[in-house]
């Protein structure tokens, strides 16, 4: 009986937490249009968020995508021509870089860099009563703190995904020149042939959803801090862990949705 009670209690807690999180997301989304129509004060926060999340992550993104493009080209060009399927390299580049790894790796990097930063920052703001200061000033903290971060992170993830593609596909072209030189024209038209609007749409949808997930999870956990500064690192860790799990689940769901 005791176990039954425990299971019941933990289920109720979980459902409660889930409903609370859903309510949080709904509230944030409700505030997005208000922020956009009403942004007297938040645009600076938005700019800084894009600077931190987008611009400052650019070098990491460039390095990783160049590396991955290189690996695909080298492995692909050593294997595919054996089957007379050399042109498949373009499809593989598109599938791996544009459809799959681009969005998810970008989101993972953003989660690791900005997710922790946002959770920590918001946790600190709670502890030092800055959130209360916003509330009492009549500035809705969701609208003024969460929404610009949501928009900034989502937008940055979208842009970084784009840069990931550019560097990944460009980098692989450079490598191709050493392995099996083709003209830029041929490489480019091969890529464009393999690239469909579905790929582009899938990549864009993914990067936007992933960016939103990262921002929502990070702000949610940051605001979960109550009063002690010892809760802040816990919130940061939780936001990364929960964020990565959700990203991978969302990636699987979106990929699945595109194949259905």
């Amino acid at each position: 009986m005791h176990h039954v009670e425990r299971i019941g209690a933990s289920t109720i807690t979980r459902v409660d937490r889930f409903i609370y999180a859903v309510g949080y997301v709904v509230e944030v989304l409700r505030q997005v249009p208000r922020f956009l129509t009403h942004r007297r004060t938040g645009s600076r926060v938005l700019t800084m968020q894009v600077l931190f999340t987008g611009v400052e992550a650019l070098s990491v993104i460039a390095t990783i995508s160049l590396g991955i493009g290189t690996v695909i080209v080298i492995q692909g060009l050593s294997l595919l021509p054996q089957f007379g399927q050399g042109r498949l390299i373009y499809s593989i580049l598109i599938i791996v870089i544009t459809r799959e790894l681009g969005p998810i790796l970008t989101a993972l990097i953003v989660t690791a860099r900005s997710g922790t930063a946002i959770a920590t920052e918001l946790g600190n703001m709670v502890v030092s009563h800055e959130i209360e200061a916003y509330s009492i000033t009549g500035i809705n903290p969701i609208r003024h703190i969460v929404v610009p971060r949501l928009i900034g992170v989502t937008f940055s993830t979208f842009l970084l995904n784009l840069y990931f593609n550019v560097f990944g596909l460009l980098g692989s072209f450079v490598v191709t020149q050493f392995v099996n030189p083709v003209s830029l024209q041929e490489y480019w038209s091969g890529l464009l042939e393999a690239l469909s609007m579905t790929d582009v749409a899938s990549s864009i949808v993914k990067s936007l959803v992933f960016g939103a997930i990262t921002a929502l999870v990070a702000t949610f956990h940051g605001l979960q801090v109550e009063r002690s500064s010892t809760e802040i690192p816990v919130a940061a860790i939780r936001s990364v862990g929960r964020g990565i799990t959700l990203l991978i689940v969302a990636n699987a769901l979106i990929t699945l949705a595109y194949y259905l």
């Binding site: 800084m48 009563h129 800055e130 209360e132 200061a133 000033t137 009549g138 500035i139």
Partner: peptide
């Protein structure tokens, strides 16, 4: 209304000026 917090609770990511200007701008 206005509220003076025990620990000040100034917004750390803004200059003092912006701390004072934000409520007015808002």
């Amino acid at each position: 209304n206005g509220f003076v917090f025990q620990d000040g609770a100034l917004w750390q990511n803004m200059s003092l000026y912006d701390n004072l200007a934000l409520p007015l701008q808002y």
